[in-house]
Structures are given as C-alpha cells and as structure tokens.
Nucleic acid binder design. Structure first.
Length: 488
RNA sequence: CGGGGUAUGGCUCAAUUGGCUAGAGCACCUGGUUUGGGACCAGGGGAUUGUGGGUUCAAGUCCCACUACCCCGACCA
C-alpha cells in the first residue's frame, strides 16, 4: 500500500468493483448511473438502517415521509441552495405518454406541466414549506423529524455506492427555538454518526467542520466525518448542517416565543446514505473479498457441514442445529449452510467473498472429537474448538474481530497521515494519504492547492489544537492545521 | 464534454498475413465417481461475432459511421 494514489487508482477501482460485484452487493443497472442493490447488499443496508433508526429514536426523533417531487418554485426560494444543486437536477416536465402514428411511444406534448417538478436531490425545501404550517409557537418546538428516502442527483460520473444517480439515505430535518439549541442538535447528530461509523462499521473517522468552499448549499456550518479508504483517499461518511435561519427566512417559518415575540426558527439537517456501504467495502475488504464487521454482518456465523454420505450429514446436522440454536440464544445471527448443491470448498470461498466474519466447519473427525473448526474471516486463521467451549469462544472472537477491524483501519490511517510544514513535502505526501498542514484560511488558497494537487481540505477538526504557523502555500500566518486529502 | 480502452454462447476470453464447420474455460443439463479450500470423468444443449454500411471470390478479422459499457479527467452536501 505504499504506491502513490494516482498510480494505483485505476487498479483500486477495479478491485473495488470486483468486490462489490462478487460479494453480491450491487451491480450497474440498465439505467445509466443507477445501481441495483442485490439481496446481500440490501441485507447489510437494512441492518445499518435499523441501527441508525434506533439511534435517532433514542435521541428523540420520529420518522415521517415527504414527497419525491418538489415544485421548481420551492426549490428556488433559497438562493445558495438552488445554486448548489441546479446543475444536477432531474426535472419532470410532462405527465403523459401517447402512441404515435408509427406505433412508438412518445411524450404527449399536450400534457405539459404548468410548473416543472424537481426530483428531490435533498428535501429541505419541500420540508420547510411544510414546517411553515406546523410551527406557530415555541410549544411546537423543537421539531425533530427524520425521513428514509431515495434522492436523485444527476452526477456526470458515477461509481457503485459512492456516487450514483439515485441513492438511498436518511435525512433529518429539525427546527429549534434558539441558535444554540440548533447548533447543539447538529453536533449531537454528528456524534451519533461517529458512534455508528466507528462502533458498528469499525471505521475510524475524523470529526470536523467544512470550509466555506466545501459547505452544504444553504448551510451556515457543515459538520462532517471523514474516513480514510485503503488507497489513502478520504471519504465523507456523513454530514450534519447547522442551517441558521436561512430556510426559515426563505419559507417564512416564524414562531412566537415565550415573551410573545415573533422570530424565525433555527434549523439543522443531517444525513448518511448508501455511500456508507462503499466506505465499508473500501475500509475493510481484502483480496479474498468483502470483510464485514460482526456487528453489521447479516450473518455473523456460517456453519458448513463436511460429509460423505447422507447418514453422516444427519449426525452432523443434529450437532450443527444444536450449535446454531445455542448461538442464536446469544442473539447471534447464524446460517447453517447444509445445501447439498455445493461442495464444502465452494461454500468456504463463497462465504469469504460475502464477508461472513466466522465460519464453523463440522465433519466426521469433529463428531468423534467433540470439536469444530472455527475460521476467522479477518485474519484467515483456523482453530479447533471443543464444542463445550464454542459458545463463549464465538462470542469472544466476534468481539475480537470487531475490535481488530477498527484497530487495523485506525493504524492504517495513522500510518498514512503526515504532518508537514513545507510545500514540497505537502506535494509528496498528499499522494499517500492525509496531510495535516497550516492554511491561511482563504478560499483562494484552498482552490489553488486543489488545482495543483487535486487535494481538498476535508475538514478543520473539532477541538483542533491551536498553534501558530505559516500557510503551507502562501506562508501567511495561520492559527491551526487542517486536514488535506484527495477525496471520493 | 475531452483522453484512452473494450464490444464474439449466461460469464471470462481465443481465433495466424482476411481462408475451410467461430474455439476453450467457467456456468447450465444428464449419468457416474466424489465431498476437511471454489472436485473429476463421460456425454449434451446453447452464437445471425454491438448496430448499419462499404471493400473482397471470401470479413469476427480491413475501412467508415453509429451505439453501449469500462477506466482516467472535467463535475460533485
């Protein structure tokens, strides 16, 4: 992994695509830029959804659903918002087809919409248009709502999970009586994302704020979590925005406070998407395929019987089913793969490709000894384990795998993060990972660095140590270091 | 929208200077032997070589146009 990002990026893409495809996560669809999420991929996404949803509920949020279509006039009410998204919007202009004289199906030009509908690239506008009706008084606040939805962004170039024309996500949209409370909310939800990505996905992230240039269109402040992929590139894993009163003003959402004074409400929005699936693949996979963290794996343990004759399978199955039961009693997700359509070696390889954290093989040899063979996906080590100790061993090993994945990913990031003080060193190290350097705080410098190196400021870390220094490019005074990287 | 590449059974690829009936592996079906790392043997089915045109006695192969996909850029909370 010491090769430069630039030289290995094509290979890395190929490697990534292979894993996504061979693990049965997703594939390109007939619709350009869109993907089909296959059953195994969707099973992982469903688990992510469930866990995140529980976290949102635990922090006081409720789910709701808003329309897929947004009238163009709503969309254009917030100036910087429309500017940020205008270039990537799918637009519905007609509502009917007809059969032409030559038998082909064509758009019925007489069925033109009076006002075009935008397929949502994000839902701030339609939601704030609705919130206007819901909020009158401080008693209606805070309003803490999340929606699970699909959105469409017509990007020029797409990659499975990381950037597709249509993608699945959740978007939280909250309204608050005070600025402080809204800022607190956006930081709180960022911490929820940190918790999820680090403790469930086993991917370490850096918390920070975006520079003005990288900020969400319409936000006052964008908080982000940034993760490092195995090619040294950064991936924005989640964002949480403090929207100030921008949308409240654009949609005229005012409330009466305790003193009877009228004021605009304060807003946040936050989201994570199926892009997290891409992060998961790129953070942990190896040349044998996907590696899933035990806490997210739809199947944490797979049991494979090894047998010659049917009678032998019956004996093995009896033991295997008992093991499955006892593990399931510990709330583990276990698959007993007793299909007779494939041989054991084939099953081993298949479950490895799919990322199942633990494999248990049981054959005649084990029946005689009262043991099983347990194989770890992350380290690819095998151990013979007495059945009597299996339950505890499995629980402990799954924990170990979860921790090991996080530690390995963290160690990789640390080994590919460089603190630099000269421009020459910057240009050299940026090809290998994250660079921590001083910056003069101007968008101009940021853009110049991007132009010369393709690297952007991923974030200004929260609780960043303050120190005097000189901007890596201009030499102007700087008070803190920021994180630069090439990004997905 | 630029630069590069690819297009041949379901998948991955082969086919000599243009030459005979377009081959192989994987997958699929049948039978048998197997089963502790993607089994083996025998047999079988499956292709208007991306589309359209041209050159030629003869085109998967050469020429032109078009289309689709992949990679690299441009673009991208």
């Amino acid at each position: 992994m010491s090769q430069k990002i630039t030289s290995r990026s094509a290979d890395y893409s190929e490697w990534y695509n292979n894993i996504v495809e061979q693990a049965g996560l997703a594939e390109h669809s007939a619709v350009k830029g869109c993907m089909v999420i296959k059953p195994h991929g969707y099973a992982v996404w469903e688990r992510m959804q469930r866990i995140l949803d529980d976290m949102f509920k635990a922090t006081g949020h409720v789910n709701a659903y808003f329309p897929l279509f947004i009238p163009k006039s709503f969309f254009s009410k917030e100036a910087s918002h429309v500017e940020g998204f205008a270039k990537e919007c799918a637009v519905v202009t007609h509502y009917r087809l007809k059969t032409a004289d030559d038998g082909t199906i064509v758009v019925d030009e007489t069925a033109k919409l009076e006002e075009e509908l935008i397929v949502r690239p994000t839902s701030e506008t339609i939601i704030w248009n609705t919130y206007k009706k819901w909020i009158q008084s401080y008693r209606d606040l805070p309003l803490l709502i999340n929606q699970w939805a699909n959105v469409v962004r017509w990007e020029m170039r797409t990659r499975l999970f990381l950037r597709t024309t249509e993608f699945l996500w959740q978007e939280g949209h909250t309204a608050h009586a005070t600025r402080e409370e809204a800022i607190e909310e956006s930081k709180k939800m960022l911490d929820v994302y940190v918790d999820f990505v680090e403790n469930w996905m086993a991917v370490p992230v850096i918390k920070g704020v975006k520079t003005e240039n990288e900020r969400f269109a319409g936000a006052v402040e964008t908080y982000t979590i940034e993760a490092m992929m195995q090619d040294g590139k950064a991936l924005q894993a989640g964002t949480s925005h403090f929207l100030g009163q921008n949308f409240a003003k654009a949609f005229d959402v005012q409330f009466t406070d305790k003193e009877g004074k009228l004021d605009y409400v304060w807003a946040t929005s936050w989201g994570v998407s199926t892009r997290l699936m891409g992060a998961l693949v790129m953070a942990h996979s190896d040349n044998q395929g996907l590696v899933l963290p035990p806490k997210l794996a739809p199947q944490q343990v797979v049991i494979v019987p090894i047998y010659k004759e049917v009678e032998e399978l019956q004996d093995i199955s009896e033991v295997a089913r008992k093991i499955k039961q006892s593990l399931e009693a510990k709330d583990l997700r276990v698959l007993y793969d007793d299909s007779d359509k494939q041989r054991p070696g084939w099953k081993f390889a298949e479950h490895e490709l799919k990322g199942v954290p633990l494999r248990i093989a049981i054959g005649a040899r084990d029946l005689a000894n009262g043991t099983v063979e347990m194989a770890r996906r992350d380290t690819k080590t095998k151990h013979v384990v007495p059945i009597a100790e299996l339950e505890t061993t499995v629980v402990e090993t799954l924990d170990l795998i979860q921790t090991n994945l996080y530690q390995t990913t963290l160690a990789f990031r640390e080994a590919h993060t460089f603190t630099v003080d000269t421009w020459d060193e910057f240009k050299e190290k940026i090809e290998y990972g994250f660079v921590v350097a001083h910056w003069d705080g101007t968008t101009e410098t940021e853009l110049k660095i991007k132009e010369e190196t393709k690297a952007t400021i991923r974030c200004i870390p929260l609780e960043n140590p303050q120190e005097d220094g000189k901007c890596i490019l201009t030499g102007k005074p700087s008070k803190q270091r920021v994180i630069f990287a090439k990004a997905y």
